[in-house]
Amino acid sequence: MADYKNINIQDIPDGGENPKDFYESFKERLEDLETFPKDYTYKFILPKDQDHFNQIQRVFDDTDARFDFKDSKTGKYTSITVNLNVKDADQVIYFYKEVAKIKGVIML
Rank of each mutant, 00 (worst) to 15 (best):
E17L: 15
T63G: 08
D51P: 09
D61L: 03
D39K: 07
Q50W: 14
S25Q: 14
D49H: 13
L33V: 06
N18W: 06
N18M: 03
F26K: 03
P47L: 14
R66E: 13
D11Y: 11
D21A: 10
P37L: 05
E31I: 03
N54A: 11
R66H: 06
E28K: 14
P13V: 11
T63K: 06
D62R: 13
L46K: 00
Q55C: 06
N18H: 06
R66F: 14
Q55I: 07
F26R: 02
R29M: 06
P47A: 12
D39V: 13
T35R: 14
E24K: 10
E34N: 12
D32V: 11
L33H: 12
E34A: 04
T41N: 04
D61T: 05
A65W: 05
N54D: 11
L33F: 09
V59Q: 01
D64H: 08
Q50H: 15
H52A: 05
E34C: 10
Q55M: 12
N54S: 10
F36T: 00
D11P: 11
A65C: 11
G15M: 01
L30T: 05
F53I: 15
L33R: 15
E17A: 10
P13Y: 04
N18F: 08
R58H: 09
R58P: 06
D49C: 05
I45M: 09
I12Q: 10
I56R: 00
D64E: 11
F53M: 09
I12A: 11
P47F: 13
S25F: 09
T41D: 07
R58M: 08
F22G: 00
E31G: 09
E31L: 03
D61R: 03
